Amino acid sequence: MFMENCIRRSIAEIDKTEKNITFYNSKQRKNCYGYNIISSGRGGKIRGLEFLFSWKEKESESVSELFDRLGNRKEYTDAIGVYMVVNRDDFTPDNPINPTVEELTMMISQPEVLLQHGLELSSEFMSKYSTSMAEAQKHKLSDLNKYKP
């Protein structure tokens, strides 16, 4: 009863309404669309569920589309804009479009916004983030040194 009312119906509803998720059939059991049952012992006591799904890739705007939308302004006010700039493959040090320490901090403090838009905080992205942060900190330090007496 629980499996039918809570799991199967929920998966069916999500499958109907959410076009960015794809569910898969279980290879272990026939009537398990979207999940596997994890059981133990001879009685087959259910220990857990493994959900079988993947997120479809959303088409994201290119960096040039982002700059068009932002009006080529240097200041990014949203986490998604900063993410797009950080995640580009053509990072160039000293580029005026590189985000500031404050913009990077704002972006990384809002993971739920990024995840809601299908943007992952993968190890590849975090490496790019580290490079961007180091660059931003270098510029912040050099800007502070300009004002030393």
Rank of each mutant, 00 (worst) to 15 (best):
Y83E: 04
D68A: 07
K140S: 14
S122Y: 11
I97Q: 08
G48P: 05
Y35E: 06
Y24L: 05
R73D: 09
M133D: 00
K138M: 14
S60R: 09
R9A: 04
E57N: 09
N98S: 13
A12R: 10
K56G: 03
T77N: 09
G48F: 10
G81P: 04
E59A: 12
L52D: 10
I14N: 01
I38K: 10
M133S: 00
A134W: 05
D90H: 09
L114A: 04
F67C: 02
S109V: 00
E112L: 15
S64C: 05
R9K: 15
D89W: 05
K27S: 11
T17M: 07
N31E: 13
I37Y: 06
S54H: 15
L141F: 12
K45A: 12
N31H: 12
R73K: 15
F91E: 04
K27I: 13
F91S: 04
H139F: 08
N98K: 08
E57I: 09
A79C: 06
D94R: 14
E103N: 07
N36H: 14
P99I: 07
P93F: 03
T22S: 04
A79P: 05
G43C: 02
I80M: 03
P96F: 12
K27D: 10
M84Y: 01
L141M: 09
R29W: 05
T17N: 13
S54Y: 13
L121D: 06
E102A: 13
I7Q: 03
L141I: 12
N95D: 15
A12Y: 01
S142G: 00
I7P: 02
T22E: 12
K74C: 06
G43M: 07
K148N: 11
P99D: 07
I38R: 09
P93D: 10
L119N: 01
G41C: 09
F67M: 15
G81R: 06
N145T: 10
E112R: 14
P93S: 14
R42Y: 08
M1S: 13
F67P: 00
R73W: 02
E103D: 09
K45V: 14
G48R: 08
Q28N: 11
E61C: 02
I80G: 00
F125E: 08
L141P: 00
P149I: 13
P99M: 10
P99R: 11
Y76S: 00
E120G: 04
W55T: 07
F23A: 03
Y147E: 14
G48M: 10
P96C: 08
K74R: 15
E135W: 11
E13M: 04
V82L: 03
I21H: 01
W55H: 12
E135F: 05
G118D: 06
K27P: 00
M133V: 01
R42C: 08
D89P: 01
H139C: 07
S109L: 02
Q110D: 05
K146Y: 06
D89K: 10
T100L: 08
V63S: 01
L121A: 05
